[in-house]
């Protein structure tokens, strides 16, 4: 684990102007060549985490620390942050149909990003765009660059989106539910592409609600619940033996694809708290099957085993 640290979130706290905390104490690390899966259900704050790294949340108050390649991002001038966005770190989104501007060809939109960060001529930019599209597996990239988003299939659109994100050689790629809008067979193609990007040495942060996707593409996983990281660790270890009761419940709730069919799936009673009604103590306590009196004090993220972090009283020595 000597790889270079790329992104370090330390006690990131994000709140609305009225003081409601959307994220409380999110700490994550992404190293070069790592893929960190950030898993959570809707409203858990996983997308907010990604957006705050990109600095795309004006109007929200962030505190703590976001350290990217050794530079502190919080408090950075928007001009400097802008130079990083798209060049040092890039993002791909859930629905490539709406994420692209519908009225310009995808080639023009990729060219734009290249020319925003590098001083190159239109011709050079287009040549790079076509080469990128080709590398992303878009057939006939030259013609594809001239097409409009609605003229491509969902899979090709997402490939184009990834090509755009990679156009300036970012060291961190943030993917926010990149395959949720796609069919499973196409999803597998896009996930394979993400794995290749990770293997080429970039850091990947994959935001998803799907444990299966994380397991198949990521090296590390962080489970987010109600604005907090409750468990973090290497994917294989977490999938094999989840520590936090929430992670356990989340994994059990997935219907099995082989073996005997259970009469009923294990479920989690209740639902996640709203950001303005978070419990004082452990945020998962009201739904937890192991709840006990000392859950009334919020547990810190501890490292009970090498490389594995969990915020639960069960693992307090």
């Amino acid at each position: 684990m000597g790889a270079e640290m790329l992104l370090k979130l330390h006690h990131l706290h994000l709140e609305l102007p009225n003081g409601t905390a959307l994220l409380e104490d999110v700490s994550l690390n992404v190293r070069r060549g790592d893929a960190l899966g950030v898993v959570g259900e809707s409203g858990s704050g996983k997308s907010l985490t990604a957006m705050s790294v990109m600095g795309l949340l004006p109007g929200l108050k962030a505190s703590g620390s976001i350290c990217f390649e050794g530079r502190e991002l919080l408090g950075m001038k928007d001009r400097e942050w802008r130079r990083l966005r798209g060049a040092g770190m890039a993002m791909i989104f859930q629905d490539p149909m709406t994420a692209f501007l519908p009225v310009r060809s995808i080639g023009a939109q990729i060219d734009e990003q290249i020319r925003l960060h590098d001083r190159v001529s239109r011709r050079e930019a287009r040549a790079r765009t076509v080469a990128l599209l080709g590398r992303m597996g878009v057939p006939d990239p030259e013609a594809a660059a001239k097409r409009y988003p609605h003229q491509l299939s969902g899979g090709l659109r997402q490939r184009a989106m990834i090509a755009m994100a990679l156009s300036c050689g970012p060291s961190l790629l943030i993917a926010d539910e990149p395959t949720t809008a796609l069919d499973v067979t196409v999803q597998a193609q896009i996930l394979t592409l993400l794995c290749e990007i990770r293997d080429s040495g970039a850091g990947v942060m994959l935001i998803t609600h799907d444990m299966g996707v994380v397991a198949q593409t990521c090296t590390h996983v962080a489970v987010v619940y109600s604005g907090l990281v409750v468990e973090q660790g290497p994917v294989a270890a977490v999938m094999a033996r989840p520590l936090h009761p929430y992670t356990q419940a989340l994994l059990e709730a997935i219907p099995p694809l082989d073996g005997p069919r259970p009469e009923a799936l294990p479920t989690i009673p209740g639902r996640p708290p709203a950001p303005d009604a978070r419990p004082e103590g452990c945020v998962f306590a009201p739904r937890c099957r192991f709840v006990r009196p000392d859950c009334a004090v919020r547990p810190a993220l501890r490292e009970p085993e090498e490389g594995r972090h969990v915020a639960c009283v069960l693992y307090d020595a």
Binding site: S153, T185, Q189, L191, T192, G212, V214, A215, Q216, I254
Partner: peptide
């Protein structure tokens, strides 16, 4: 095979679109 599962690796995907 394409269903992402926590208990198995990513299989080689089907090529092309529907």
């Amino acid at each position: 095979n394409a269903v992402p599962r926590p208990d198995r690796p990513l299989p080689p995907p089907l090529k092309g679109d529907v």
